[in-house]
Write a protein that binds this DNA or RNA. Structure first.
Lengths: 158, 158
DNA sequence: ACTATCTAGTGCGAAACCGCACCAAATGCA
DNA sequence: TGCATTTGGTGCGGTTTCGCACTAGATAGT
């Protein structure tokens, strides 16, 4: 290797490339474990509803996952069709809705987590979770920055 | 169970969640800078052809990006329709093809990189690339492991 | 050589994703 | 109050993604 200049562009692109493949790969692995008809996105939303708490609006969910609201509408529609969530009208705002997990939804999430557990454990055997914990803050921080760049429509101009 | 100290499961899920959002976010930002009609995937393939070198087969590309070969077929079709790549038959193997970038492809890639540069620079201002460089090896290593788990159909039969 | 098996690529159909345009409800303003 | 603007959500259409099944070409075993 004759050259090793610290070109920051290359670092960023290498990083995003790695992140992209990682996301893709984990997504593929996970979806293999989920029952057919449920996608990783759907699972993720369900997971979020339990972790953070339900009763929020679809738009809040869309923002939390940084997806267009039409995509979230779709995901929620599928989840509701499967009886895993329930959409209730917002009595305070006629345009809005509330999102609740159903008992089936909780059970389903539980089962899915169980189905995923062996893989997680296998990963943990090959790769210590503590090392991941080490990089997590960095990822989170960068995510916040990207987030901000997104809200802020200013790429560059003085 | 009031106890939740270092649960490795949580670390992994938090990590994958962060990676997923990061991928999503960067993808969204990038696609904003690309000319309409070209998606991030297409750009990524083009980028790969220049970095690693062209002349490979579609299947090799599919494996490099860890996507199903049908997805790669689609991407390549689009790229060819735009005249950014050229698919040539493999004289040694009638089933196979070779993938080459065209001059337009190179020019397009050049222009896209230029369009992306300001954003990268903006990121670099807010977040030192050196910190990314620090986490990169960890990501790469985990990627390799996921890769191996994928090829190996053994999750850990219960 | 001859057949069985395997492999590269594609057609097809279904699902996911998402921009655009729209509606209805809420808010702001005068 | 009346009207313009903003906001939450959805219908629609186009693109991407990907599993399944198939074809044509290559390889292996006998």
């Amino acid at each position: 290797m004759p050259d090793d200049p610290p070109a920051p562009d290359d670092i960023f692109s290498a990083f995003f490339l790695e992140v992209g493949i990682l996301a893709q790969l984990s997504r593929a692995l996970f979806s293999l474990r989920l029952p057919p008809g449920i996608s990783v996105s759907q699972f993720t939303v369900l997971n979020h509803l339990v972790r953070v708490g339900d009763g929020g609006t679809p738009l809040q969910l869309a923002r939390a996952f940084q997806v267009p609201k039409t995509s979230m509408t779709h995901s929620l529609t599928v989840l509701e069709r499967h009886g895993l969530i329930r959409l209730a009208p917002n009595p305070l705002d006629g345009r809005s809705k509330f999102t609740f997990i159903t008992a089936e939804g909780r059970a389903f999430l539980q089962a899915s987590r169980a189905a995923l557990a062996p893989d997680i454990r296998a990963m943990g055997d090959l790769f210590p979770a503590s090392r991941l914990a080490g990089v997590l803050p960095t990822l989170t921080e960068l995510r916040r920055i990207l987030d901000a760049m997104r809200d802020d429509p200013s790429p560059d101009q003085t």
